[in-house]
């Protein structure tokens, strides 16, 4: 079975985020980029499927700061091939990224036909669309999102997937493959890979670099960011300050005042 995993880098939101002087984008200086959380789950799900059904996992990413480390980590975890697309348009547009990725998937030798294309369900910066349905639409493939479990029929003609609904309800779907899935969470937490193994992969494996194809949909941008600002400059919460014992005493007073203790 052939599985493609799309990995997208996004700013680490646990770090402080600053606005660029333009006022319309994040300041890339000092910003830590990490692989989007649900993409990590997409990779894990692909590796689980490979263990279960056999096959080959290829990871695919657009060039971005620190992406090499992420691709080598994927190889160290068990991916068979890593491809980096260089020179693609930068910025916030997920639609442009999806266009580029779909073109590469459709044209790069050895990538199609793939049985499964796994993407993360949503990234923190997916302002103008989600990558999985956009890729599916462009490649004319079926799509299912918010997936937390996936298995494939023996003949390989269809997949079964679990999708999450509100309130802990899940839905089971049958999907004709090849298909694109937006993975929310893998069946198991993403495996941990020690740095030493990533370093070893850097020596034993190579990342294939390919140039980004010219965009087929080279149109003027469909949305324009007019301004960006920090959302929590003036938080609503009353901030309690002091030592752990000091703030604990204050919390007790608040709870007592509300008859909660």
């Amino acid at each position: 079975m052939k599985i493609l995993v799309v990995l997208k880098m996004a700013p680490d939101v646990v770090e402080e985020l600053d606005i660029a002087p333009s006022g319309t984008a994040l300041d890339p200086r000092g910003q830590r980029m990490v692989v989007s959380e649900s993409d990590e789950h997409a990779l894990e799900e692909a590796l689980i499927l490979k263990e279960r059904h056999g096959g080959k996992v290829t990871v695919l990413a657009l060039d971005a700061p620190d992406v090499d480390e992420v691709l080598f980590a994927a190889l160290a975890k068990g991916a068979d091939r890593a491809i980096k697309i260089k020179g693609a348009a930068k910025g916030l547009a997920t639609s442009v990224a999806a266009d580029t990725l779909a073109q590469v998937i459709g044209s790069e030798l050895g990538l199609t036909p793939a049985d499964l294309i796994l993407c993360g369900v949503q990234a923190v910066d997916d302002l103008d669309g989600l990558i999985a349905p956009l890729i599916a639409c462009q490649l004319g493939l079926p799509f299912l999102g918010i997936v937390t479990g996936l298995w494939v029929d023996a003949p390989g003609s269809r997949a079964f997937a679990i999708k999450e609904y509100p309130g802990g309800v899940r839905g089971e779907f049958e999907v004709a493959i090849p298909a694109v899935f937006g993975i929310q969470a893998a069946e198991r937490p993403p495996r941990y890979i020690p740095v030493a193994k990533v370093r070893a992969a850097m020596k034993s494996h190579a990342i294939e670099c390919i140039p980004a194809p010219l965009p087929v949909n080279a149109v003027t941008p469909l949305i324009q960011v007019l301004a960006m600002r920090k959302a929590t400059l003036a938080p609503r919460a009353e901030i309690l300050e002091g030592s752990p014992d000091g703030v604990s005493a204050r919390v007790c007073e608040i709870l007592a005042g509300r008859d909660l203790i």
Binding site: Q122, G129, P133, L134, E164, P166, G182, L222
Partner: peptide, 23 residues
Amino acid sequence: LTNVSLGIGSWLAGQLRVPAVNF
């Protein structure tokens, strides 16, 4: 943008080549 309807908007925008704004 809920677990029920997620994906519909992106796909429509992709198919019709019209602007989409999330969140």
